[in-house]
């Protein structure tokens, strides 16, 4: 005879993703990899910022890999590969975010030796909503916002901005053209994440890239002093 029973679970809906992410994080840490999850709206300039960052890191002899998430094309992966970095494409076929399991699969597929990688950049799918729920095992979540997107974007997408550790304002060469109030944008970022570290950059004009690169190097140094 069937009887109804109440089972207490108190379990996160994404606990499976979180477990895989935690295992990835442990692996990255044991191999000395600083993992970064880049999130932003489509067109904020993730790929171009990454190009400039990769070029500088490679020039200084650092070992760098990129997992490039893209809905349908491998355009971004091709652009990034031209810098000379290790690049592997994650084509999501319409999925609007990356999940930890895919990161795990694609690292295996790429056959990378993690002990030979210092910085792993994960370029998430351009989307300001869905990626926020998924931990990918990263050390830092980096959110990009371009000056063309409007100062109030952080208030409109508080979930993602709150979940990020670092904000990079992009396309600052266009501040005057689009009449962006940069101070207001920064206030709005800090309104949803009070201690957020903010960088101001223009990948096209090569402005503000080096301070961001220095920050990444320093973050890695602090975590892996043994390397």
């Amino acid at each position: 005879m069937l009887k109804t029973r109440l089972l207490e679970l108190r379990q996160g809906v994404l606990s499976k993703n979180d477990q895989i992410a935690e295992r990835l994080r442990e692996r990255f840490h044991s191999e000395g990899v600083l993992a970064l999850n880049f999130v932003s709206a489509p067109g904020s300039g993730k790929t171009m910022l990454l190009e400039r960052v990769l070029e500088r890191l490679l020039r200084d002899g650092h070992r760098v890999a990129v997992l490039a998430g893209d809905l349908e094309t491998d355009n971004d992966a091709q652009r990034l590969a031209r810098t000379g970095a290790l690049v592997h494409q994650i084509q999501t076929h319409g999925a609007c975010h990356l999940e930890a399991e895919w990161v795990q699969q694609h690292i295996a597929e790429a056959r990378w030796d993690l002990s030979d990688i210092e910085f792993l950049f994960i370029e998430n799918v351009g989307n300001l909503v869905c990626p926020s729920s998924y931990d990918l095992g990263e050390d830092l979540r980096v959110v990009l916002i371009s000056v063309t997107e409007g100062e109030d974007k952080p208030l409109k997408y508080p979930v993602l901005f709150n979940s990020a550790d670092v904000a990079v304002i992009t396309k600052i060469d266009l501040v005057e053209a689009v009449e962006c109030d940069l101070e207001l944008m920064k206030r709005n970022i800090r309104a949803v994440r009070p201690d957020m570290r903010i960088f101001e950059t223009s990948a096209k004009r090569d402005i503000g890239i080096q301070p961001f690169v220095d920050f990444l190097i320093e973050e890695r140094k602090q975590r892996f002093t043994f390397c």
């Binding site: 089972l7 679970l9 379990q11």
Partner: peptide, 16 residues
Amino acid sequence: LEIASIEVEVETPEEV
């Protein structure tokens, strides 16, 4: 984003 509890239908041993 948490599953607090679930209500399931089970065959109870007592009934059997």
